[in-house]
Every structure is written in C-alpha cells, then in structure tokens.
Nucleic acid binder design. Structure first.
Length: 490
RNA sequence: GGCUGCGUAGCAAAUCGGUUAUGCAGUGGCCUGCAAAGCCAUCUAGAGCGGUUCGACUCCGCUCGCAGCCUCCA
C-alpha cells in the first residue's frame, strides 16, 4: 500500500486516487531563460521516479509538467542577449530536453506552455472576476483578492496576519491589500503582450499553472508537485485561483522535494551558487548524477559535493561489475515490459522473493529511494557470491537487479558499454564537450594482449609496466584465473 | 518577528521503542606472480539536558546548532 507525504496535511497518507487505477500528476516545470541546474535535475529525477513507480504499480498515470515561457526574467534575458523571446525560449527548451534525456528522465505525457495557454488563462481570470475573487487595480493590472479566499495559507501553514508583506519588497499601491497578487499584467512599452478584456498584457506567474493543470487534468486531480520553494506563494496562490474559479477542491495531495545545497546553503539562481546539469555531466556520467540524487530521500536536503558524486560513481561501478557476464540482451527484454508496455512473455525468470518485497516496501513508504537502493546493494552482494557457487541463481539475481534498477531509472546500460564507452552519453545527445579519451579501445586490447604474452613468459616487469601505463590512462585491468584479462575504464 | 524542517559513526544515508541497516572510505584476511575485482572479518553512531518506559537513537519537553519559507527561485 503506497503512502505519500502530503504537504497539505503534513503527514503520510495512504494514496487513494480519485478514480481507481488512474493518477493525474502535475509538476511545476522550468522557466526557460537559462540552463537547468542540479536543483532542476532533482525535480526532474524525483518526479520521474515517482511516475515510474506509479506505473510499476499499474496506475494509468497522466503526467503533466509545464513550461513557463513568458515572464519578467525571460523578457530581461532576451533583451540582454539582443535575441527574440521565441529564440531564447526555444533554445533553452531544447537544452532542457537534452538534459532530461541524458538523465534518463521519461518525458511528461503533456508539456503545456504558458504562451499556448493564454486563452485558458484569460477564461480563468474572467471566472475569478465574476466570482469576485479578482479585481482590476488602479493601474489596470488584475489582482487576486487574497482575503476573499478563506483557506489562504493552508498549504504553507501561514496566517495572513503574520505575513510581513512589503517588508523586503515595495508594496504595489495599485493593490487593495498588500498580499494580493497579480493575475494579468498590463504590457509596458516594448513588452510582448496578448489581447484581453483588460487590455494588452500578459499573465502573472501563478495563474498559468492553475489554468494549465486544470485544463490538462480537470478541476480536481490527484497529485501536484514541485520544489519546496514553490510552496509559498506559488502553490498557495494556485489553490486560491483554481478553487476560486472552479469552486471545487483543486488537488488532493501536494508533494514537495527538498533543495540541493552547496556548503550547507541552498543552490539557487539568485545566490549564483549553482552548477548547470551540463557542467556536471562533463565530469560525471548522467547515471552517476541520477544515483546521487536518489541516494537521499526526496524531501531531505541533498548536499552537492565532489565527494558525494565520486561516491555515487563508485557505487554505480560496483553495480555494473556485479551485472557483467550476463546476457544483457535477454535481461533488457525482461526489464522493460512493465514500464514500456511492451510485455515480453518470454522474459527469463525474475527472482520474486524477499528483494522485490523489500524494495516495494521501501518505495511504498513515501518513495524511500535510499532504502530501495540498499536493497539493490544487497542483491548485488548476493549476486557476486552466487556467481561461482550457483550460476543460475546469480543470473536470476542479475535480472532482479536490473528489473528493480529500472524502476529507479538505473542500471539499464549494457555493462560492457558502461565500462568501455569512449564517448560519454552526454556527447551522443550533444550536451557536453568531448571527454578526453587518451587511448582507444583497440589499442587497449592490443596492450592487454601484449601483457598476456608477457605474463606467459613470466616477464612480470613488463606485465606490470603495461598495467601501470594503462592505469595512468584510467584503464583498470583485471586478471581472471583462466589466464584471460579484462579491462574497464574508470 | 511569524512559520517549516533538520541535527545518526571518517563521509553519505535510512529504518526502528528491546534484534547486523546500507553504500563509500579505513583496517585485517582469503584469492592473485603482484594487482584489480569479489568474498569474509572488523573499527568508528545517534547535538546537549531532563521526562515517559522494565527498556529510547526511536515518544514528550527544554536548550543549543543548522537550513528553508515569509521576494523571483526547483
């Protein structure tokens, strides 16, 4: 039985979809004026894992994640760059999709854009005015009257009396109440605009998500997610807007993921202490980044450091070492069925014992990926033990490892590719610069053969020298008892 | 000032009122020509002070420390 922590009630709740077997999930996506940083990667990976697991549980999931492609920052950045807004956002939308693919994040089912939803946004604002939740301010902007919505502050646990509006930001005098927020913003000279009953302008930030989520998923839906920082005011405002317009309960369950931190401080654009996904991918493989993210619970803070990334890399190498020597092609078939829908009846035996149960128990407990991963480590250990003593069992465990790994979006590579890849995955989709490969695979094979010959001649000095030279080029050799040698890149 | 959340061994990270978490790193061993990988063994815990309890890392209270939100932010 799946339990999920609901920010609205501040407790773990048994997940019960509105319609049996179906889940509507909306996640607040990116504002596309810059490259995604590791914090964005966390949202992508966390909710991708949520979706994968829900699908694994046989829910029919509709996953919606929006793109904010019009707002102040975008306008400013386009002006700075001297490029059109369309060109800027198209560029960063492409970049975002590249980052996603690299991180094995499955695309959302629907990816609505603010600029394609203007009609729905205007309709919702009109509804809010009709229902007397919104008014036109003295400057022509349309505002939401916060005091008209009785539950305002429920999600974030805030009492409007305690909020110090205007403490750090000048209160807009056009508002009736300092807490009120803008729904429709009148266009200034030179700004992009859309026609509306209130004049030429553009939507406020919060309204787009209310419009897009209810349009895609209905007035009420199951789960709404995003980063912790969106809890207030963004999600609070979404509730006020949606429920004010529809009169129906907006969302049953709110999920918020924790921040990525650097040196005990939030990674954020405004602090400037962020690493972009593509920067990180020059140094670490996407799968390492994904494993790093899933190593901590999604609601906990996640500290970004080389030490942590290196540790994730060592763990991943350990998994692939356990997985090598098995027929990858067969495993691949066995693994994909449930998540892709291409069910293969000929899949090999999948160990169906305690590991799967333990894994599911962990994931059922609010997507506890650290514990789920610890189950995978246990599988890997038993698999390594079984390799010599019980080959059939080992094979079944290898399937299990890949099968469970797939639910987390991990361990889907051919181990040979993982260890011998010359070009980073990120290169193949155009993200990063070429990673310097100081030696090609054929040359490695040749040197390894020379070393085998040297070993046969008991020329240990030469054998060691070749091994050291390869080690210097990040190629690790492993001798087997049968006289063969295999190698892997580090 | 208001409101959240957190403080676990060298590092990271969970569970749990009484039983080995797990991984990385370290140490000792097996294996190996030597390594590597793997396996076996092993050292480091639960911020501080009280309380509840037969028994608390786990529940409650207080103190200290850290982070976040109250402004755009994932």
């Amino acid at each position: 039985m799946l339990k999920i922590y609901n920010t609205l009630t501040r407790s773990k709740e048994t997940f019960t979809p509105r319609i049996a077997g179906k889940v509507g999930l909306y996640v607040c996506g990116m504002t596309v004026y810059d490259y995604c940083h590791v914090g964005h990667a966390r949202v992508m990976v966390v909710f991708d894992t949520v979706v994968r697991y829900l699908r694994y549980l046989d829910y029919d999931v509709t996953y919606v994640r929006n793109i904010t492609d019009i707002d102040d920052k975008i306008i400013h950045r386009a002006n700075e760059n001297g490029e059109s807004i369309e060109a800027l956002t198209a560029r960063f939308i492409d970049a975002m999709h590249e980052d996603e693919r690299a991180l094995a994040v499955l695309p959302p089912d629907i990816e609505p854009r603010a600029t394609s939803s203007i009609h729905d946004i205007i309709a919702m604002i009109e509804k809010l005015i009709t229902n007397e939740f919104a008014y036109v301010g003295t400057n022509g902007d349309v505002f939401y009257a916060v005091d008209k919505f009785k539950n305002y502050g429920q999600l974030s646990g805030k009492n409007t009396d305690d909020l110090q509006a205007g403490e750090r930001v000048d209160v807009d005098l056009a508002k009736r109440n300092p807490m009120d927020f803008v729904l429709w913003k009148m266009a200034k000279e030179g700004e992009p605009f859309w026609e509306s009953p209130w004049g030429n302008g553009r939507p406020g930030w919060h309204i787009e998500c209310s419009a897009m989520s209810t349009c895609c998923l209905g007035n009420s839906f199951d789960i709404h997610g995003g980063g912790m920082d969106l809890q207030f005011p963004h999600h609070e405002n979404e509730i006020a807007q949606s429920e004010g317009a529809t009169g129906e309960k907006f969302v049953n369950l709110w999920m918020h993921n924790g921040f990525v931190r650097i040196n005990e401080e939030k990674m954020s654009k405004s602090l400037g202490n962020f690493f972009t996904v593509r920067e990180v991918l020059k140094q670490y493989s996407p799968e390492v980044v994904r494993l790093f993210i899933l190593s901590s619970h999604y609601r906990s803070p996640l500290n970004y450091s080389d030490e942590q990334l290196n540790s994730a890399k060592a763990k991943l190498t350990g998994f692939y070492i356990a997985l090598r020597d098995f027929d990858y092609a067969i495993m691949k078939d066995s693994v994909n069925s449930k998540l892709t829908g291409d069910y293969n009846a000929n899949v090999p035996y999948i160990d169906d014992t305690e590991y799967k149960t333990r894994f599911e128990r962990a994931m059922n407990d609010d997507f506890n990926t650290p514990i789920a991963l610890s189950v995978l480590f246990d599988v890997a250990k038993e698999l390594n033990k079984a390799k010599k003593s019980a080959p059939e069992k080992a094979e079944a465990l290898a399937y299990t490892l890949q099968y469970l790994g797939n639910i987390l979006g991990l361990l889907q590579e051919n181990p040979d590719d993982y260890f011998k890849r010359v070009v980073a995955i990120s290169d193949s989709i155009g993200i990063s610069d070429n990673i310097e490969v100081s030696i090609s695979n054929p040359i490695i094979d040749k040197q390894v053969q020379e070393r085998i010959d040297a070993k046969k001649a008991k020329n240990w000095a030469l054998a060691d020298q070749i091994r050291d030279e390869l080690k210097a080029k990040n190629v690790i050799l492993e001798d087997s008892p049968d006289g063969t040698t295999r190698w892997r890149r580090e």
